[in-house]
Amino acid sequence: MLTMEKPAQTRDDLIDALLLKAEVDAFNARYCAALDSQRLADWAALFTEDAFYTIISRENHDRGLPVGLIYCENGGMIRDRAFALEKTAMFAPRYLRHMVSNLSVREAADGSFTANADYVVFQVLFDRPAATIHQVGRYDDVFVRTPSGLRLKSRTCIYDSLLVDNALCIPV
């Protein structure tokens, strides 16, 4: 993907690109921290009101099939998801670590920009010695700038690990 990016023409362009990438990196760190500490309301607040969020298998994605593990069409549904998981859902306690890497960012003319990054989610159950790799995949994102900082207008989590280990309890 890198070779497809518009090459930075000048030193200023390059610095702008690096600053933007650093900004998205910082956003993703915040995003992961909210999930890993299971502050799901904080996580939901990182999306715009018209945001789209889904976790879809690479199998479905590649075949153009829309079914996702989680499918949210707007900020309300994302908050419903956060609320339901925090207040109603029963699952064994666990720790998670979200890792994000290989970020690439492309800016669009209207000020929004798209980004891609790979992610890994580790899961620790309290009665097992090892952290397991719970999901491996790729974020396909659209960001916008708002007065309160970057927000996700769309995040599609395309996961490679097709066979989910039992249940997916926390978003990715």
């Binding site: 298998s57 479905n60 079914v67 066979l163």
Partner: peptide, 10 residues
């Protein structure tokens, strides 16, 4: 067809 989920249950 709208898609699949697959998971393993212990």
């Amino acid at each position: 067809l709208l898609g699949h989920y697959r998971h393993s249950l212990p």
